[in-house]
Simulated assay, not measured.
Amino acid sequence: MEVFAVEGLPEVRPGDDLSALIDEHVDLQDGDVLTVASTIVSKAEGRHADLADFDPGDRAREIAARIGDVAGERKDPRFAQAVIEQSEEIILASPFILAVTRFGHITVNAGIDRSNVPGSDLLLLPEDPTASATGLCKALDVPVIVTDTSGRAFRQGQRGVAVGWAGLPACRDWRGEYDREGREMTATVEAVADELAATANLVTGEGSDGLPVAVIRDWEFGDHAGHDALFRDRESDFVRQALADYEYDP
């Protein structure tokens, strides 16, 4: 398969027609998968915010103080309040905030970005990234994955992940198929939306690269079952359950 970043996109502003901007800068083909960074989706959808917009409550002040004690520096409780308001649940309050977003993604600080946000303090994740992907998918007639970068438990570093998708299943389900020895696979589910997001991140880069869109060409889902249950539910997520009872003790 071929993977390449889309060059020349301008700075995206609130109200911009993102599908039209992308269409002007790349000739999409049948079978392409388009990956779009959540940052430009958020910018087009006006998801900018300022710290002054958030009035910290007692919980936000407590969280900021706890993280500040660990870090050895003062933390702004207004940022903690922003994270609380963008979250369905706070799983960890220190040494960092691990939050469940309202659309089911679990990430640090509810995915709120503080870099590359001209004219504002913060950039919030899209309210519904799958709905955003669906709109782009319909307009551009190719599958779309809205991506973000996220850290990984047990490993250093970040990688691209899917936070929304449309036009393809998020997961390739190998259960019921057979390996080379004829054994039936009973557990293997491949998170292809995440794998494609991570692949795109290799060419879009981080920081000042300014390449938020990539095209994945000549990749095929294959003759497999698929489903969209990428985010574990609470009942089957044993790590999440364990973290609910965890208290950080420096």
Rank of each mutant, 00 (worst) to 15 (best):
H25L: 08
A65H: 11
F54P: 08
I67H: 02
V83K: 03
G57D: 08
L51I: 00
D58S: 15
G72M: 01
I40L: 02
P14Y: 08
Q86M: 11
D53C: 14
E89I: 05
K43Q: 15
G31H: 08
R47D: 11
G68E: 00
A64K: 00
V33S: 06
S87Q: 05
S87E: 08
D32L: 08
D58N: 14
V70M: 02
V83I: 12
R61I: 06
V33Q: 06
A60T: 04
I67Q: 02
I22Y: 12
I22E: 13
I91L: 14
V70P: 00
I84H: 01
D27P: 07
A49S: 11
S38D: 12
V26S: 07
I40F: 03
D55E: 14
D27F: 10
D23R: 15
K43T: 09
G72T: 00
I91A: 08
G57M: 05
G31L: 07
V33F: 10
D30M: 08
R13A: 13
A52W: 14
A37P: 04
R47Q: 15
D53Y: 10
D55P: 03
A65D: 14
E85R: 15
S42F: 10
A60H: 03
G46V: 12
P14V: 07
G57F: 04
I90T: 04
E85A: 09
D76A: 01
D53S: 15
S94M: 04
I90K: 03
R78E: 00
R61V: 11
L21R: 02
A80H: 01
V83Y: 02
V33R: 03
G31W: 09
E45D: 14
L18I: 05
Q81G: 06
D17C: 10
D53R: 10
A80C: 07
E45H: 14
A20I: 04
